[in-house]
Design a binder for these strands. Structure first.
Ligand SMILES: [Zn+2]
Ligand SMILES: [Zn+2]
Ligand SMILES: [Zn+2]
Ligand SMILES: [Zn+2]
Lengths: 144, 144
DNA sequence: CCTAGTATGTTATTACATAACACTACCTAC
DNA sequence: GTAGGTAGTGTTATGTAATAACATACTAGG
């Protein structure tokens, strides 16, 4: 998980952006979490020990990290998860296990042109795509 | 748009469910709307004229209508839109125009097996799929 | 009637997210 | 150096989305 932090430092340096304390803190917490986290859990966690942390601080950090592709927002349930393809920009889907709540990240290049085409048939030009799912992950399937 | 109401009546009758006043009201408002609506706009709108309408009433109606497939929830921005394939149960994607905010509903059967397979490779078994997008719709493209 | 099932009404609360403004650090032009 | 711009944070307050919990009403079956 420390890889991700180093990844972030490098990425920021290259693009002339600051990897500041709150941004680092939020990313560290997310990277250490087994499952996607809700914003307010993140806010409490970030406030543990040090000074109290307020919503805008964390939301700003999340926006930043999401834009860099280091963190993904899961729209289905408004949670956030650290990326495990560190800095990828290829299309990916996030599948959340109903049992253990962990998220599985899956690349799906194949799908994009199909959806783009399907949209284009109706005259719709896609600029952003959200693909998410629910189901059962490998570990939970084996445990059953 | 009245088609949808009749559709709903028929669907409820067949499955022994009640198409009650609040459910009808919510569906009527959504069917009359050009664009997807936020829950609280729906709540205000439902309260116009008659008695005040409170959140749980509308959220319950929305849950009901979503389960029947008469309404879809757009996860990206927590809005709700009446289905225009009335009672379909095939997989569909919802693409929202950045300009006019209208939603375009697109069938995409092709995509499902690909995503299922991609998930299965990682041992993940899909039970629900959310496909959404953003972009520009036909009308707005022509206007530009 | 009575009661189980289904749905609504109402109050209160919880959870998610942002507006607005003050302040700091840093960089660059003059 | 110092004035002004940019980027980022801290803080207060508020806006927006969703649900918990419990009371009440309607309806069909025994
Ligand atoms: Zn990722
Ligand atoms: Zn699992
Ligand atoms: Zn539909
Ligand atoms: Zn449009």
């Amino acid at each position: 998980m420390h890889d991700l932090i180093r990844q972030a430092e490098a990425l920021c340096q290259r693009s002339g952006m600051a990897f500041t304390a709150p941004r680092r803190r939020v990313l560290e917490i997310l990277a250490a979490s087994e499952t996607p986290m809700k914003a307010y859990d993140l806010i409490s966690k970030a406030g543990e020990g040090g000074q109290a942390t307020k919503p805008p601080t964390v939301y700003r950090a999340l926006d930043f990290l999401c834009q860099l592709g280091l963190v993904h927002r899961i729209e289905q349930d408004a949670t956030f998860v650290a990326c495990n393809h560190a800095g990828h920009s290829h299309p990916m889907a996030l599948f959340v296990c109903n049992t253990c709540l962990k998220a599985t990240e899956v690349a799906y290049d194949e799908v994009v042109p199909i959806l783009e085409k399907a949209a284009e048939v109706q005259g719709f030009h896609l600029t952003r795509l959200v693909v998410e799912g629910r189901g059962q992950c490998r570990d939970c399937a084996l445990a059953a």
